[in-house]
């Protein structure tokens, strides 16, 4: 019975299963990096720009570092940034969205603020913050999270605006339920499904922005291997050592693809209506 249930789920939601499986695999690789890969930092100039071989599965880069090891360790930063940004943006964005949706006075001010943040290209905002506050993982996470907040706020606000007029909320209000409880118990639950979907999209976009920042040299400090800075440091060797660029590039695309597939699948399953409009 259980088996046919699983098979049925896979058949009906192939994108959720494919996305989740791929992500699990990459997350396991990132967690157990020391067990499955060598030292990503050690460099042997004598072995620079070697092609893929038995010792170096994906060859070496221009400093003679193991591309495979760096690729595996690079997954750590991407996943860490993706998950943290999604968490921070969803948490702060939904708090603001709840308040904006419920209180009309807050709404006017907050939505103008969000329009303003949305007008600034996210990568420029992140560049400016990193340039000012210094390159660290914490700064990168915050810098990427800020431009993602308006998306969450707008989503939650839209849900609150639809829900607040419904009879069960009216009933709770006329019973004298306090506002904090009203928001938490009666309104917040309606936002969960679209928020889960939105969180996956934010995670995907955060991984892309982090890679972009690292690529531009405005990301985490250069000693951490990230897929973005691997590509940046190998750009001059595209012709003679394409593996140094394609290996991290393909990883990056696969992770983001996995997260996006998961998001699309969850959207179709949880919330076919609202999320598509956002």
């Amino acid at each position: 019975m259980a088996n046919s249930g699983t098979a049925e789920f896979i058949r009906r939601h192939p994108t959720i299963v494919a996305g989740a499986a791929l992500l699990t695999l990459i997350a396991l690789a990132a967690i157990f990096a020391p067990l499955i890969a060598g030292d990503p930092l050690v460099f042997e100039p004598i072995n620079r720009l070697r092609g893929p071989s038995n010792t170096f599965w994906l060859g070496t880069d221009s400093l003679g570092r193991d591309v495979y090891a760096r690729m595996v360790y690079g997954a750590r930063i991407s996943l860490l940034v993706g998950l943290s940004v999604a968490f921070i943006a969803v948490l702060s964005g939904s708090l603001v969205g709840l308040l904006a949706g419920y209180f009309e006075k807050v709404d006017a001010v907050v939505m103008r603020l969000m329009d303003g943040i949305m007008a600034i290209p996210s990568i420029l905002l992140a560049i400016a913050l990193v340039a000012l506050l210094g390159a660290s993982v914490k700064v990168v996470i915050i810098a990427i999270a800020i431009p993602e907040i308006p998306r969450v706020t707008r989503l939650v606000r839209a849900v609150v605006l639809t829900v607040r007029g419904l009879p069960f909320v009216e009933a709770a209000r006329s019973n004298g339920t306090r506002i904090a409880k009203l928001l938490r118990r009666h309104i917040l639950p309606s936002t969960i499904a679209p928020l889960i979907v939105q969180a996956t999209y934010i995670c995907a976009s955060a991984i892309l922005t982090e890679a972009g920042l690292s690529f531009l040299g405005a990301g985490t400090p250069p000693e951490f291997p990230t897929w973005g800075n691997m590509i940046a440091s190998s750009r001059l060797y595209l012709q003679i050592a394409p593996w140094t660029i394609f290996a991290p590039g393909i990883c990056l695309a696969l992770v983001v693809l996995a997260v996006n597939l998961l998001g699309d699948g969850l959207r179709d399953r949880l919330d076919p209506r609202i999320a598509r409009r956002m």
């Binding site: 972009g212 590509i231 394609f246 590039g249 983001v256």
Partner: peptide, 16 residues
């Protein structure tokens, strides 16, 4: 795919 592959990865694949 268009959403998932970063600009610079597409760029280097095209250049290559």
């Amino acid at each position: 795919t268009g959403f998932s592959v970063p600009v610079f990865v597409v760029g280097y694949i095209l250049v290559y």
